[in-house]
Amino acid sequence: MVEVQFRFRDDEAVNDPAVTVDAFTDQSNATAVRIEPGDDARALLPYLDQLALVEVNFPAWTDGRGYSSARVLREAGYTGEIRAVGDIVIDMLGHLKRCGFDAFAPEHPLNPTDAQNAFDRWDNVYQATADGRQPIWAKRHPAGV
């Protein structure tokens, strides 16, 4: 199993083996599932209470479907771990985190300094997403005025 290199959670790491979305929705009482790019993350919505870990696989970092998967889960109220696995590169890290990822297990470990820079890069953001950060427009108009 590939190691988690970065994690932004205080709870105990989940190390249950992740099953496929099909296997999970068919029967399983598993607590960890892995989403592939072609899977519909919404298939998991009835089971969110049961899940402690969702791995989202990026077989190629240029396939961005996993970003939507993570946001869909967060928007539905899922609070467990969402772990990015596969072809994770430095320049994705900040954006993944904004979409709700809170753990990162790159196939090839990343330079920790470069990674930290990437996580810390943006002091401000233009959009409201799953990370709860206050977007620039909200700062411009405090209290929604």
């Binding site: 970092w61 240029t62 396939d63 961005g64 970003y67 943006w122 233009y126 959009q127 997403t129 620039i136």
Partner: peptide
């Protein structure tokens, strides 16, 4: 323009 700049979900369409 502002919404689409660095939109984290839509950078690898």
């Amino acid at each position: 323009r502002q919404w689409s700049s660095f939109h984290p979900e839509f950078l690898t369409l």
